[in-house]
C-alpha cells in the first residue's frame, strides 16, 4: 500500500502522508478502510516504528484518518470532503501552471487544445 522512495529527500513520514492523501483522493483507499498496523508496516518497510506513528498522527491531524484506541487506524468516512479538498488544491496548481505558461508566451488556444486532449470531445 505504501512505499518509500529512498532517493526522495523528503522525510519518510511526509512521504507516507502524501501517499495516503493521494490514494484517498484517487479512491484507492476506501472510506473506513483499515490501515496496516504500525508493526507490520515497520517490519515490511524496515523503518523506525516511531516514524510510522508520526506519519499516522500527521494523517490524523489532516483529517485523513482516524485512530481508534485498541483497534488501529482507519481511513476517514468523510472521504468526499477530502476529495473535494484535493480537487481544489489541484485546481490551484493548474491555475499556477497556466499563469507560468502565459508568462512563457503560451496562448489561450494552446490551453484549450490541451483541455480537449485531456477531457475529449
Amino acid at each position: 500500500m505504501f512505499f518509500i522512495n529512498s532517493r526522495d529527500k523528503t522525510p519518510i513520514y511526509e512521504q507516507l502522508c502524501r501517499q495516503a492523501r493521494e490514494q484517498i483522493a484517487l479512491g484507492v483507499l476506501k472510506p473506513g478502510e483499515p490501515l496496516p498496523s504500525v508493526r507490520s508496516l515497520s517490519t515490511e518497510l524496515g523503518i523506525n516504528p516511531n516514524t510510522i506513528q508520526r506519519a499516522y498522527r500527521m494523517m490524523e491531524d489532516e483529517g485523513l484518518t482516524v485512530s481508534i484506541p485498541g483497534k488501529g487506524n482507519f481511513v476517514t468516512e468523510d472521504t468526499d470532503a477530502l476529495q473535494q479538498d484535493h480537487r481544489a488544491k489541484q485546481c490551484e496548481t493548474v491555475r499556477r501552471e497556466l499563469a507560468a505558461l502565459k508568462k512563457l508566451g503560451g496562448t489561450k488556444s494552446d490551453v484549450l487544445q490541451l483541455v480537449d486532449e485531456v477531457y475529449g470531445g
Binding site: 504500525v38 508493526r39 515497520s42 517490519t43 524496515g46 523503518i47 516504528p49 516511531n50
Partner: peptide
C-alpha cells in the same frame, strides 16, 4: 541491514 532493521522495529514496539 534490512533484516536487522525489521527485527529492531519489532523489538522496539
Amino acid at each position: 541491514r534490512e533484516s536487522f532493521k525489521r527485527v529492531l522495529g519489532e523489538v522496539m514496539l
